[in-house]
């Protein structure tokens, strides 16, 4: 049990580069996860706000879609950023989770949690649900592959029609709950991870996380609910669609 000499930090640094040692380190990967998570959350917020235009009627929403498409550089820039973030995020999540599982080969027979939350303990599961959801969501409303009556360009129609049918709205609701959990823990957790902490404001981190999560989740949930309660109907969709196509 005698301790032997260990390589000092300096010796360690000279052989490995700065970036690779950062990415190899637990904190480095956590920071990657936090920053990519921030990008993804930022997108989710903007995405939800943009979608609120559905309540202004088909013309407004579809016009918004047209506007976005008119700026391919921005659109593709964002897509690449999101894709890269998602890949990095999942990479970091998988590698850290594996390290965490390996760190305790033999578990406890009994364990009582005191401080952790349901959200914090289920991050990896809410994350997996989100990943599946993202794939489904793209196939459903972006590519239309799994959509029963997909009309390219008629966003309003696709959303309303998409939520009228089968299990789609339920999966959507489930995903939003997962998003809520992931986001609540993720938002304040990422502040901790990048070192944003101050005794006076730490409590605000939770309030902020709760607020932004509630905003996104309620906003997003309102869409299927509005469709299912009949608040949003698939009026004049074909006309709008043709207009959009022109």
């Amino acid at each position: 049990m005698s301790a032997n000499a260990i390589p000092t930090p300096l010796r360690l640094n000279r052989t490995t580069g700065r970036t690779s040692s950062f990415l190899a380190s637990s904190i480095g990967r956590k920071v990657v996860m936090a920053l990519t998570g921030l990008v993804l959350f930022g997108y989710v917020v903007v995405h939800m706000l943009g979608n609120l235009q559905i309540y202004l009627g088909p013309a407004a929403l579809n016009a918004y879609a047209v506007k976005l498409r008119a700026m391919p550089a921005l659109l593709w820039g964002v897509r690449v950023l999101l894709f890269a973030s998602a890949v990095l995020h999942v990479w970091a999540a998988v590698s850290l989770t594996r390290a965490n599982v390996a760190a305790r080969g033999i578990g406890y027979r009994e364990r009582r949690n005191r401080e952790s939350t349901y959200a914090s303990r289920t991050m990896r599961w809410s994350g997996v649900i989100l990943l599946l959801f993202i794939v489904y969501h793209l196939l459903h409303l972006t590519l239309g592959t799994v959509h029963p009556g997909f009309v390219p360009g008629d966003v309003y129609h696709n959303v309303v029609r998409g939520f009228q049918m089968g299990i789609a709205p339920f999966f959507y609701v489930l995903a939003m709950l997962a998003l809520g959990l992931h986001m609540y823990h993720g938002v304040w957790s990422l502040m901790q991870t990048v070192g944003l902490s101050h005794p006076r404001y730490d409590r605000l981190r939770y309030a902020f996380a709760a607020f932004i999560t509630a905003l996104v989740v309620l906003g997003n949930l309102s869409f299927p609910i509005a469709v299912m309660t009949g608040l949003l109907k698939d009026r004049s969709s074909s006309r709008a669609a043709t207009a959009a196509r022109r």
Binding site: M1, S2, A3, N4, A5, I6, T8
Partner: peptide
Amino acid sequence: IGLGKVEMFS
């Protein structure tokens, strides 16, 4: 100990 000058026997 890290520098190898002391060998520790706990």
